[in-house]
Design a binder for these strands. Structure first.
Lengths: 201, 201
DNA sequence: GTCTATATTGGGATAGAC
DNA sequence: GTCTATCCCAATATAGAC
């Protein structure tokens, strides 16, 4: 047994890596990838930047670990694997938005890196392009099921619902990051679902 | 008379400054502010970075010039000063979106800097916070007038219309930058107006 | 596993010649 | 107005001692 707890010299490498990934997610969310420094990340863990690089060979590798971690946490929170009733689909998305609102850090990480990834030669461009395509597909599947059950508003196609939901969600989060008092992400999303569906949220 | 044309040694300082601002807008849009280098900007103009700094004392000053230039161009395109008929308000916004779609560089500049400005210690944080507040007010005024004329959809408040329009617009532009084939900004905006108003767009 | 020391690169900015 | 040369600083990454 090599991991004996969360602290102390026998805490283990796995725990240290977890600490680093968490700190990196914080820093990348606050400063972006390029402007976020390994020194800052290492400082929050209480080690030197060169020690950090002992665990993750390069900044790029660390970024990938952070993104992979976020994907696995999101999947866990959403339970995409379980079947979701068409009528429950909007409510499931609202729950995810509420969970994000309670963890402001994840909003920054996602929103800042998303926009940064549209710049030239950005290491996470492919990641976000793939991830947005996947999200669009997931949304489309959910709204397709709603359409079949007659739960979409008149003249709203599943495609339209998927694209507009993703757009309004991202945009609301950006506005919230810029000025937290100016907008409530969950309320905007509820209003959107009220307009494009026939179910209560 | 010191400015005799667009090229040649007597082109004038004003023309050179214009070239620099245009190149800076390109580079900041493609790479963001922090990652965009003065060397890159100067290279596109055909001068050295130190020559650039002769015209604009620092990178920060150049950024402010770029943002001020964008504001004045937008104001010119929108003609906010002239009165807009309530029924024409959505169409006016669509025109602006169409104009942006024709100048992809503008979208990158705005969207990338907007998200970057949410990171810690960013020099344009105040600018974008103020600008978004102003835009929200402008939108609110337009939708208020529509509400008075009975042109908003049922159960849609002017406040809701303003916030959601800004969010869906920003979000759609981000998606477009990430993957230009995946979304059409103007179509998403049209769909949104179709749902929140009673006018044809 | 962590540190110190260092290599290397690239950034913004200044001084001074022309 | 523009260039070359230079300064200073911060960053990622590596080497090697402990």
């Amino acid at each position: 047994m090599t991991t004996t707890g969360k602290r102390g010299p026998y805490r283990g490498t796995a725990a240290r890596r977890r600490e680093i990934v968490d700190a990196a997610a914080e820093v990348f969310g606050e400063s972006g990838y390029r402007a976020g420094s390994l020194k800052d990340i290492a400082g929050r863990v209480g080690i030197d930047a060169s020690s950090l690089l002992h665990h993750f060979g390069s900044k790029h590798v660390l970024l990938e670990a952070v993104l992979a971690d976020k994907v696995s946490r999101d999947a866990q929170a959403l339970h995409w694997d379980e079947e979701i009733e068409p009528a429950e689909f909007p409510a499931a998305l609202i729950r995810l938005a509420e969970r994000n609102a309670a963890n402001p850090g994840v909003i920054g990480l996602y929103t800042v890196l998303l926009a940064e990834s549209t710049t030239v030669d950005h290491p996470s461009a492919d990641f976000f392009r793939d991830r947005h395509a996947t999200t669009r597909r997931d949304f489309l599947r959910g709204f397709d099921a709603m359409a079949e059950a007659g739960l979409l508003a008149e003249d709203v196609t599943p495609q339209e619902a998927a694209l507009s939901t993703l757009a309004i969600w991202d945009g609301a989060q950006t506005q919230w990051l810029l000025d937290p008092g100016a907008i409530e992400v969950v309320a905007v999303l509820r209003g959107h679902f009220r307009r494009i569906t026939r179910v209560e949220v």
